[in-house]
């Protein structure tokens, strides 16, 4: 079947098998291999992407369900996403890197949707429960997200003359 899926701002029209999972669509059809597969039971979050701005596990969404929707992956170019990536590098919020794209997309999502909630350990921990990391023990990931939040906030602040 034909699908029209917008990925990272670019429109893709492809003829696909109805059973194709979104994660395989991204990885195999579009060669966007930054989105990873860590399980076959929707437990790990390595495959996390945004669909119309909401975080989803792309191994649990059929590509055809993404028809006429907008997908954001780790390959997306965006200054806020870049700020998060920088913070992960500074804080060494990764070791083997396999969970990292999913973690960063989830971080992007939880920072964008914090509203007036404080981005503290509690808020981050609660919202990171869908993503497993076997290497870091999460401490450095949480610190990376806090750092990213700070960097983004600082950048947004404008200079106001008295």
């Amino acid at each position: 079947m034909m699908v029209n899926i917008r990925v990272n701002g670019k429109q893709y029209k492809k003829d696909i098998e109805p059973r194709l999972l979104l994660v395989n669509f991204l990885r195999d059809e579009l060669n966007l291999t930054g989105t990873h597969i860590g399980c076959d039971t929707s437990n790990c979050g390595a495959c996390t992407v945004l669909m119309d701005g909401k975080s989803v596990k792309s191994c649990t969404v059929l590509a055809m369900q993404a028809n006429n929707h907008e997908i954001t992956t780790i390959e997306h170019e965006d200054p806020e996403l870049d700020a998060i990536k920088d913070a992960y590098v500074e804080e060494q919020g990764l070791q083997c890197g396999f969970c990292t794209p999913g973690m960063i997309i989830e971080s992007f999502y939880l920072l964008k949707n914090a509203g007036d909630k404080e981005v503290d350990d509690d808020y981050i921990k609660k919202n990171l429960r869908g993503n497993l990391c076997r290497c870091t023990g999460y401490r450095s990931i949480i610190d990376s997200i806090k750092k990213a939040n700070k960097n983004i906030k600082e950048r947004e602040e404008i200079h106001v003359s008295r």
């Binding site: 597969i37 060494q92 990764l94 990292t100």
Partner: peptide
Amino acid sequence: MYLDRFVNGTGQYIDDL
């Protein structure tokens, strides 16, 4: 560096080849 490669999703893990 590996950190940059991995945060950008450009690592080349076995299933990416």
